[in-house]
Amino acid sequence: MTSMTADFTPEGTTEISRVLADTPSAAELADGGYLTGPEGQAVASQMRESQLREALLLGRCGGTNDVNAFYQLNEEPAEEWMTRRELTIAQYCAPCPIAAACLELALRYPEHPRDLAVRGGTTEEMQLTLSKADHERLAKACALDARPAEQRVERLRPAREVKRLTQSHIGLSVKPDVLKTNHTELKAAVAHHERLQGEYRRVTGWAA
Rank of each mutant, 00 (worst) to 15 (best):
M1N: 15
T2W: 09
S3H: 03
T5E: 04
T5C: 10
A6H: 04
A6T: 14
D7N: 07
F8H: 00
P10Y: 04
G12P: 00
T13S: 09
E15V: 12
E15L: 12
V19I: 13
L20I: 08
A21V: 09
P24T: 04
P24M: 03
A27D: 05
E28Q: 14
G32S: 13
G33P: 03
L35T: 01
L35E: 03
T36P: 00
P38K: 05
E39G: 07
G40K: 00
G40D: 02
A42G: 14
V43H: 03
A44E: 02
S45E: 06
Q46P: 05
M47E: 04
Q51C: 05
A55M: 08
A55H: 01
L57R: 12
G59V: 00
C61V: 06
G63K: 12
G63P: 05
N65R: 14
N65M: 08
D66K: 09
V67R: 13
V67K: 09
F70M: 13
F70T: 05
L73E: 15
N74D: 13
N74P: 10
P77F: 04
A78G: 13
E79L: 11
E80R: 15
T83G: 14
E86T: 06
L87C: 07
I89V: 11
I89G: 02
A90P: 01
C96G: 03
A100P: 00
E104G: 00
A106P: 01
L107C: 04
L107Y: 05
L107F: 01
R108M: 12
Y109D: 15
Y109N: 07
P110W: 01
E111I: 04
R114H: 10
R114M: 08
L116W: 10
V118C: 07
V118R: 00
R119D: 06
T122F: 08
T123A: 08
T123N: 05
M126F: 13
M126P: 06
Q127I: 02
L128M: 09
L128N: 07
L128A: 15
T129R: 14
L130T: 00
L130S: 02
D134Q: 04
H135S: 08
A139Q: 13
K140F: 10
A141T: 10
A141H: 06
C142K: 12
A143C: 13
L144I: 09
R147A: 07
R147Y: 07
R147D: 05
A149D: 15
Q151S: 07
V153M: 12
R155V: 14
P158T: 13
A159K: 09
R160Q: 14
R160A: 15
E161V: 11
V162M: 12
V162K: 01
Q167W: 10
I170P: 00
G171W: 00
S173W: 12
V174D: 04
V174R: 02
P176M: 10
V178L: 11
L179M: 08
K180M: 10
T181Q: 08
N182W: 09
N182K: 08
E185V: 12
L186C: 06
A188K: 14
A188T: 10
A189Q: 03
A189W: 01
A189P: 05
V190K: 05
A191T: 05
H193V: 06
H193D: 12
H193K: 11
H193Y: 13
R195C: 03
L196I: 07
Q197N: 15
E199T: 12
Y200S: 01
R201Y: 11
R201L: 13
V203M: 08
T204W: 07
W206D: 02
